Simulated assay, not measured.
Amino acid sequence: MALLDNEKCILPISSIAELLSTKPRTLKMYEEKGLFPQAEGKIKKLYSINDVRYIAFVHYLASIKKINANGIKYILEMLLNNMDEKNRNDFLDIVETKLEKISTKDVEDIENF
């Protein structure tokens, strides 16, 4: 059995939306604003497992922290320009741990507030 390649683009936005308990349209809106890594595929855009962590971070900033697209772009730019890959991955691990503690109901309560 081959090891899983986290860089291979295999996930459509609808699957990522299901993983994050959000609507595909929400993620497409982030994508249209240029907040996601470049997707592979011309007709159906696909993302890697590593991209999901990045997308989850963007979704967290937008939906939980209520940061607008320009603020998110600035944060992402700071991460990409000022952190090496190891520190960036460590940071995303910390964010992922925090996201696991947030329930879907918490997110819905915030969205309905």
Rank of each mutant, 00 (worst) to 15 (best):
V58M: 02
N112M: 07
K86R: 11
K44M: 12
K23R: 14
S15R: 09
C9G: 11
A62Y: 07
A69T: 05
N112L: 10
C9R: 14
A17L: 09
S15N: 09
D109T: 07
E7A: 14
M1H: 05
I49N: 10
M29A: 14
K86F: 04
N82Y: 13
S14Q: 15
E108K: 09
K33I: 13
I110A: 03
E31Y: 10
S63N: 07
E100N: 14
I75M: 06
V52W: 05
D109S: 06
A17H: 02
K105F: 08
L27G: 01
D51W: 00
I49S: 06
E77M: 07
F36E: 00
M83H: 11
M29L: 15
S103A: 00
E108F: 08
L46E: 06
E77G: 12
Y54L: 06
M83Y: 10
K44F: 15
K86N: 11
E31N: 11
Y60P: 06
T22G: 00
L79I: 14
E111P: 01
S103G: 12
K98W: 11
L79W: 12
I102D: 02
F91A: 10
E31K: 08
C9K: 15
F113R: 12
N68D: 11
E32M: 04
Y47P: 02
N6P: 13
I55G: 07
D109P: 03
L80H: 10
F57P: 02
M1A: 04
K101A: 12
G71Q: 08
K8T: 03
L3Q: 13
E100R: 15
N87L: 15
I110W: 02
I43Q: 11
N6W: 06
I49Q: 11
L76N: 06
L19N: 03
A62I: 03
Y60H: 00
G41L: 01
L19R: 02
K101N: 05
K8M: 03
E96A: 14
T26L: 05
N50C: 02
L3R: 15
M83W: 01
A39E: 05
D109R: 09
S15H: 05
K45G: 04
I49F: 01
P24S: 07
K45Y: 00
Q38R: 14
V95L: 07
V107C: 01
I102Y: 11
L11K: 05
G71H: 05
D84S: 06
E7T: 15
L61C: 15
I43G: 00
R53S: 13
I13L: 14
I10R: 03
I72G: 01
D93H: 03
K28T: 08
A56F: 04
T22H: 01
K44H: 15
R88G: 02
D51F: 08
F91V: 06
L80Q: 13
I49R: 02
E77F: 03
